[in-house]
């Protein structure tokens, strides 16, 4: 129920406002979409066309942007010659692996935290949430050194572990909120009915399943989009799409077409996922503080 549902009287002022809002929205749409559009179009332009600009101030020649013959050679190049199939797979493995570990371990822990009272609980929370907020760069320093010593650099396992540093506390935190919303009485009823504690837990799983599903996807989103961990710890064998894309930027003769194509490949799946979990985005991105 929005505040706009309240009765609105049309005054001259409100007409001006309506016109203004239309202009503002149009503007903001342009502002939001333009970089994405340029990226996509550029991924289909060959090198010469990509660098074509009208002369300064010649607004009438903006159409130059659309003047090109589309080519898919950059995409082809990426997958066939530059190994992007591997990178794509690496992204899936690292993001998926970290999401699964985080959600499985995290949901068990979150459930216990939700149902069990003990001293020091809020201190535990604080520790958990601070691990989620730590600057990636700061965590990177020790992790790099430690993983190097354990030969985990450049391995899938190492990268999955690194991603888990922020996905696991995230999972615990958010999922605990979910379990808090399921009344304990349902599990109690189940136990009185004759189930064991674990069976009672299974009885409420259908109630939290959609939320858990959404957060698996959110974990994947965060891990997929990560650059620092992936480039420093995942370099070599476990390289994912973001660092791979960045590496396409060579000092001379930058292949912008391929870079834009790589950008599209990295971004498109995440946009689709974002559409899927639209409902849970606010909760996920605000660590549960805001519930839609």
């Amino acid at each position: 129920m929005s505040s706009r549902d309240a009765v609105v009287y049309k005054t001259p002022l409100s007409r001006i406002w309506t016109i203004f809002t239309v202009i503002f929205i149009a503007f903001y749409l342009l502002w939001t979409l333009l970089p994405l559009v340029i990226m996509t179009f550029s991924s289909f332009k060959d090198l010469l066309a990509a660098f074509q600009l009208p002369p300064v101030g010649a607004f009438s020649e903006i159409g130059l942007f659309f003047n090109f013959t589309p080519t898919t050679k950059h995409y082809y190049n990426l997958f066939v010659n530059l190994g992007f199939t591997t990178y794509f797979l690496n992204s899936i493995i690292a993001a998926g692996g970290s999401a699964i570990i985080s959600v499985v371990l995290g949901s068990m822990c979150a459930y216990a935290l939700s149902r069990y009272e003990f001293r020091g609980k809020s201190d535990l929370f604080f520790w958990i949430i601070s691990t989620r907020m730590a600057p990636v760069v700061a965590v990177l320093v020790p992790l790099y050194a430690i993983f190097r010593g354990m030969d985990l650099i450049g391995t899938q396992a190492g990268l999955i572990l690194a991603f888990t540093t922020f996905n696991l506390p995230f999972a615990i935190w958010i999922l605990k909120g979910f379990f808090d919303n399921v009344p304990y009485a349902i599990e109690e009823a189940s136990m009185v009915d004759g189930s064991t504690r674990f069976q009672a837990f299974r009885a409420i799983l259908p109630l939290v399943a959609p939320g858990i599903g959404a957060f698996v996807i959110l974990c994947i989103l965060f891990a997929w989009n990560d650059f620092l961990f992936a480039s420093i710890i995942g370099s070599g064998g476990a390289k994912t799409l973001p660092p791979a894309t960045v590496e396409l930027v060579q000092p001379q003769n930058i292949q912008w077409g391929s870079i834009m194509a790589a950008g599209v490949i990295t971004t498109l799946p995440m946009m689709l996922l974002g559409l899927l979990i639209r409902r849970y985005l606010v909760t996920g991105l605000t660590m549960g503080a805001v519930r839609e």
Binding site: E188, A189, V192, P206
Partner: peptide, 20 residues
Amino acid sequence: LEPKDRDIAMVFENYALYPH
């Protein structure tokens, strides 16, 4: 004894029905 072993039945104040 756990609830399941006590041969009791309980009706909760807020019914605690399984929603699904």
